[in-house]
Design a protein around this nucleic acid. Structure first.
Lengths: 174, 174
DNA sequence: CTATAATGGATATTTAATATCCACTTTGAG
DNA sequence: CTCAAAGTGGATATTAAATATCCATTATAG
């Protein structure tokens, strides 16, 4: 089975599907993994991360599946990334400098400076991602504010997307 | 042999040693790997990355070793990270969305938005790291501007660092 | 010429990410 | 109440990437 380059990209695709799914019909994980040609069991674990982090909701059983847990305007790339990657995202500095300068304050001071610097950088990174919401991405890409119009659980006619695109390029400017 | 958590931390330790080495005596890679209790051959490859990226210089042969390629004020954490990690640092988005919305512009537009957003975030991250120089870290941690005073190729008396610390805490404020 | 140190390629090992399998729980329908 | 469909969770397997080793080569000083 083909491997996704990164869990984050997979997460983005998941949100694209959950976010465009008809609001009252939960999307099944199998529908997503099929479309992404991704490992069904692993994809479920990825989706679970999104559930645990409050990005999507899940319901078990017949008619079960996944829905967005919040308004798409309240779901940012920050939320996506934190949910998928947790704190495994960035460089972590341990106590390496202690080997260079043992038993003096030099190592401790140095590490503090390093940690502050990277924390600062990480904060900038994450803050930047907070400004892009799922709503922004979907409405811009699809060209309409009513993007919850697909039932991915059924066979999807991909031509529909083309028609939509054409209609948009004539009518309104997104 | 103990493994370093991350190449970046190892790189920081390397720069700490090269940066405090007596200016006219190149430091040998074996002196560094011994002190860091790191794999000598792998550490050489890490150092090679720093050489290739213009952070340090190398000389082969007897009396050979490594020296800083630039003024410590001109070496930033950005330089370190780029040298060590290259472009493997961040999330990369491939063409995953094309599976969700095939053959329409939706995927292309979506990916462009995502890529822009992450590029923006990465830029913020890296720019932030540019503001911290090796000079800043060493002078702050050690407490003096004359930090190129160690010959790591010889047996180092670690007590010296403690004495230095004490002298600093009496005399000047760093 | 020789000893020392960095370089580079091929390969091995280890770790983390990805994937699979299966037993379990939850839910709605009949 | 039972059954089938769907998510959950744990144990484990596979794969890819990072780390490590080995060894032959090149560069340099004496």
């Amino acid at each position: 089975m083909m491997k996704m380059k990164s869990g984050a990209e997979q997460g983005a695709c998941i949100l694209a599907m959950v976010g465009t799914q008809l609001a009252d019909v939960p999307i099944k994980s199998d529908a997503i993994s099929e479309r992404l040609s991704a490992s069904p069991s692993y994809l479920k674990k990825v989706m679970r991360k999104l559930v645990i982090n409050g990005v999507i909701n899940s319901v078990s059983g017949v008619n079960g599946g996944f829905t967005l847990a919040k308004d798409p305007k309240e779901i940012s790339l920050y939320d996506l990334l934190i949910a998928i990657q947790g704190d495994n995202l960035f460089i972590k500095f341990g106590g390496g400098l202690k080997k260079v300068f043992p038993e003096s304050e030099i190592a401790a001071t140095g590490e503090r400076i390093l940690q502050d610097a990277f924390l600062q950088a990480e904060t900038q990174y994450l803050e930047s991602l907070k400004s892009i919401s799922l709503h922004t991405i979907l409405s811009q890409a699809i060209g309409t504010e009513e993007y919850q119009f697909v039932n991915w659980n059924e066979k999807v006619n991909d031509e529909l997307f083309n028609q939509l695109q054409e209609a948009m390029s004539e009518g309104e400017i997104s």
